[in-house]
Design a protein around this nucleic acid. Structure first.
Length: 624
RNA sequence: GGGGUGGUAGUUAAGUCGGUUAUAACGCCGGCCUGUCACGCCGGAGGCCGCGGGUUCGAGUCCCGUCCACCCCGCCA
């Protein structure tokens, strides 16, 4: 029978004791956060998940016989991260309070000490502000998690999960579970595959999302579903992408886009209030987030997840360049000729010209060396270069290769379109639309961080939410020269676009939406197709034959024939919400046991090799 | 698959033009110290300079390859 735990129960946590407890006898458990040996007495900071309490080991403590002396002798052996229990008496620190600790008005003079466990010297200190590299911290993740910042982050994540469950439960949503081991269906993200032991040469896929199953819940008549679902995608990682992640998955019947937005807005408002204490009604008094058309988002920001905490929009210059037949700039003349010849369409351009204006105040801070670095930066993303022009006193272009040949008329027109002032710098990108957009979108954010418009990471106290709506249903696939579903093949087109499905697929808009926060996509969904006739037209536009549709989505198509209600849904990235809300630098900071960029768990060293016998049992042979 | 940054005591970093025994801070170990709370003072130990090859009389430093971590493009909602 151990003295502590069995006989002496913990009476308080280490954040509990205040002046009012003075005189009480208490039992505390925890980790040694620091020990300061002054010869005649020893101070120990005792830490648990709630906080820290200062212990004093004083051999001369009166009224407890020899016990304090014994404890004092033992205390000299204590080292960082030992796990101990103590029994002691709460005493006031008088005027000598520690203002840094909530428990700083008191200290516990120890009568009895028990050591639960010693600790090796940890590879890094368990302190709030640590400069140890992430690689080391991930290797000893359980020690990193012992630190207060990560304890707080995971608590916030817990809060998110609980509030989410309460919110949906209150509104009559059912939390329903879906399988992780699913049938592989082509398209979309790459799946992790799981070999079947019972069926030679056959594989399950780990679900990339519960998409089909949640739609089938609607067919089943559950009407309102949510799930906090783990999803897996075997794609390359980024700071906001992990191979396994968590979605707040939602599907609703008999709703339109507005209904879904209202549901999600209610949730987000509640989460921000509960976790951060931030009332989003102050910023969004209507209770809803602003909406931006997909077209505008691409035009002004170059992607469908704009960070609107700062301005610096892109300026679309293609029309001007066409109207001026390139305006004396060789590359632009070539590009303009494609439009006038009819090879490129003005409403769905293949190649474009865009500008980005840097205001004079910031432009002045860009040295020649920094401009060269920016050019390297864009080249790394597939750009051929970074054409630029500095605006002179009367609108002339300085320090610019374009200046030599450009006509005054086009130059004036561009200056006007960009609203330039003396000292501004214009950056240009031209060529393939997707490259121009990617390069300029990243350049815009890169510059904003450089100029201090937004912090390098974290929200900087600003939360800019946005619904990006009305995107095209199809994207043109350059490699296969066909139209592909931009989201998935079951997204409902706008009614007035249905006739375009055959005539002009690129112009078809649809009921798809993304929720964007500070430049990150935190959610996305759509109103689904439940009309078999329109569904058939969509498949035809995608070049999917009836047989192919049957093979790929047979069970869903069949289900839709048995009385499917109109329905739609959305999935929110819980990890991303947690990251943005807490101001964390990456998804890894809000996931307890994350993977590195190569998909490795540094703590367990997964993935690892398995024996030939195991492979044989799974009917799998390595090609290595 | 591609571009970029980095890898030196337990940790974080410095290390010049290639040249003597590879530095510092924190941590760790020992000693001293009754009011610290980033305790202080004295002393000490601690290195496969990511790994492999090459150039050189001589490589932490130069060259080639490779592995790992991070950021980005492609990929991915």
């Amino acid at each position: 029978m151990a003295r502590f735990i069995d006989e002496l129960k913990r009476s308080h946590d280490n954040n509990a004791l205040r002046a009012e407890h003075v005189g009480q006898e208490v039992v505390l458990f925890g980790w040694v956060a620091s020990n300061r040996d002054h010869g005649g007495c020893v101070f120990v900071d005792l830490r648990d998940r709630e906080g820290t309490t200062q212990l004093v080991f004083d051999a001369d403590l009166q009224g407890y016989g020899d016990e304090p002396k014994v404890a004092y002798e033992q205390s000299q052996a204590l080292r960082s991260e030992w796990v101990i229990g103590i029994r002691g008496i709460v005493k006031s620190r008088g005027g000598n309070v520690n203002a840094k600790l909530p428990t700083g008005a008191v200290e516990v003079h120890v009568v009895e000490l028990g050591v639960f466990n010693k600790s090796d010297t940890p590879p890094f200190e368990i302190i709030d502000k640590l400069d140890t590299g992430e690689e080391k911290r991930l290797q000893y993740r359980y020690l990193d998690l012992r630190r207060k910042p990560l304890q707080h982050t995971l608590r916030a994540r817990h809060r998110l999960l609980q509030e989410t469950r309460r919110y949906f439960d209150d509104r009559g949503f059912l939390e329903l579970e879906t399988p992780s081991l699913v049938k592989y269906t082509p398209g979309g993200a790459r799946n992790f595959l799981v070999p079947s032991r019972l069926h030679a040469s056959k594989f399950y896929a780990l679900a990339e999302s519960p998409q089909l199953f949640k739609q089938l819940f609607m067919v089943a008549g559950f009407e309102r579903y949510f799930q906090i679902a783990r999803c897996w995608r075997d794609e390359d990682l980024r700071l906001d992408r992990q191979p396994e992640f968590t979605q707040i998955d939602v599907e609703m019947s008999f709703v339109n886009q507005d209904d879904i937005f209202a549901t999600i807005e209610g949730l987000v408002f509640r989460l921000w209030k509960a976790v951060l204490g931030v009332d989003l009604l102050e910023k969004y008094p209507s209770g809803s987030f602003p909406r931006m058309n997909f077209d505008e988002s691409m035009g002004h920001y170059g992607n469908d997840k704009p960070d609107v905490r700062f301005a610096m929009p892109h300026v679309e210059l293609t029309e001007l360049v066409i109207d001026h037949a390139g305006g004396g700039v060789p590359f632009w003349a070539e590009l303009a000729a494609h439009f006038t010849s009819g090879r490129y369409r003005r409403d769905l351009p293949t190649e474009i010209v865009k500008g980005l204006r840097v205001p004079a105040a910031q432009a002045a801070s860009l040295s020649r060396a920094e401009l060269d670095k920016l050019e390297e930066f864009v080249k790394g993303m597939g750009s051929k270069g970074l054409a630029r022009a500095k605006i002179g006193p009367s609108g002339e272009w300085l320090q610019s290769p374009l200046a030599k040949t450009i006509t005054p008329e086009l130059r004036t027109a561009i200056n006007g379109a960009c609203s330039v002032q003396e000292g501004d710098i214009l950056f240009f990108q031209f060529g393939k639309e997707s490259v121009v957009h990617t390069v300029l979108a990243n350049l815009r954010v890169h510059l904003a961080k450089k100029f201090g418009f937004i912090p390098d990471s974290g929200h900087g106290g600003k939360f800019e939410f946005l619904w990006v709506v009305n995107p095209p249903l199809f994207e043109y696939d350059d490699e296969t020269k066909t139209w592909a579903a931009a989201h998935h093949a079951f997204t409902r087109p706008h009614d007035d676009c249905v006739e375009l499905l055959e005539k002009d697929p690129g112009k078809v808009l649809c009921w798809r939406y993304d929720l964007v926060l500070n430049g990150f996509e935190v959610g996305g969904g759509s109103i689904r197709l439940h009309d078999p006739e329109v569904q058939a037209k969509v498949f035809r536009a995608l070049g999917i034959s009836d047989e192919e549709a049957q093979t790929k989505f047979g069970f869903l198509l069949e289900a839709l024939r048995f009385g499917a209600p109109p329905h739609g849904g959305i999935a929110l990235g819980l990890d991303r919400l947690a990251m943005l809300l807490s101001g964390a630098e990456s998804l890894r900071d809000v996931i307890a046991y994350p993977k590195t960029q190569k998909g490795i768990c540094l703590m367990t060293e997964a993935p690892n090799v398995v024996s030939a016998k195991q492979l044989q049992e799974l009917h799998v042979r390595s090609t290595e």
